[in-house]
Amino acid sequence: MISSSTDRILLPWHDPTPRSVALRIAAGSARAIVEGRLGPGEMLTEAQLAEAAGASRTPAREAMVQLQSWGLVRLVPKKGGIVTAVSPAERRDLVDLRATLEIRGIQLVAGFPAQRAVLADRLRASLAAQRSALEAGDLLAFSEQDVDFHLRIIEAGGNAVVAELATALGPRFARLTHLAVSGDALAAAHYLREHEELLRPLESGDAPAFSAAVRHHIAAAHFPEGPDPEESAAEGLR
């Protein structure tokens, strides 16, 4: 079920040869938004993007549409695109979806020791990259490797459509993590420890324990202030 990741492009700005000028513009803008160099509420215009990229307004317009598809801007007719903010509801929905897909991925490989071993090796490489990013104080790189870690678990299930959808959400996942760890290396170190804990049930093929560990990771990493009120209400209806 685990496919080769030789040609895997994790996030748009990692693509060394984007298929078009529009994608190159969109990728650069996405990185700026994820890093916080373009903040929520800022207005982007076609003219601004075109001038910065040395391109015409047509690819800049296409780039704006792509940024909206990634959930990073909201288009306003005849004005441009407003950089979106991550709301509590979006944060809850994104991490819940990611956890659901990860749990399913581990359920599918639980009975296959060889595939679990391959996945564990890939995750250890991701953990090593996370440590290096922390040591260098590069929280963007850490956030990127956080996305890599979780997407590899999702991809382990072997569902190409699910993997494609999860990868399309990569910029939003990266922004979520970067917001959580930005200016807080201790929070990033906590993420790393939580990731290391996820390896244990994964390697043993204990899907229920992995599910519990993922949910704990979400609560500790993304909701340290306590249960989300809307999520608690939803739990009461189940």
Rank of each mutant, 00 (worst) to 15 (best):
F142M: 13
L127Y: 06
H222N: 01
E197R: 05
A168Y: 05
L108M: 10
H150N: 06
H195W: 03
E102L: 01
A180R: 06
R122F: 11
R116A: 07
L202G: 09
V162P: 11
A125W: 13
V162Y: 08
I153K: 10
I154E: 02
A207L: 05
H190V: 15
A221G: 04
A207E: 04
D184R: 07
V161L: 13
V214E: 11
Q130P: 15
N159L: 09
Q130W: 09
D148E: 10
A125C: 11
H150W: 13
R172V: 05
S204G: 08
A185Q: 06
R200G: 15
V181N: 06
L139P: 00
G137P: 00
A174F: 01
A187C: 00
L176S: 10
I106V: 06
S132V: 14
H217M: 01
G170A: 10
R152A: 14
H217Y: 02
L176E: 01
G170V: 03
L165E: 10
L165N: 03
P224Q: 03
F223V: 01
G157L: 02
A141H: 10
A156Q: 03
R175Q: 13
E196Q: 11
V109E: 01
P224D: 03
A133R: 03
A117Y: 11
G111T: 14
H217N: 08
S211Q: 05
L169W: 04
S143V: 01
E144A: 12
D148I: 10
A166H: 00
Q130N: 14
Q130C: 12
Q145A: 07
P171W: 00
L186W: 07
A188V: 02
R124P: 08
Q115M: 14
L139W: 02
A207T: 08
F112L: 12
A180V: 02
A133G: 04
P208I: 03
H195N: 14
A120M: 14
A163N: 01
P224F: 07
A166D: 00
E194H: 08
I154V: 07
Q115F: 06
G158S: 08
R124Y: 15
L123H: 09
A160S: 07
E164I: 14
L179R: 03
E196R: 13
A187S: 02
T177E: 06
E194D: 13
E144P: 12
R124G: 01
A174R: 01
S126P: 01
R152Q: 08
A174E: 05
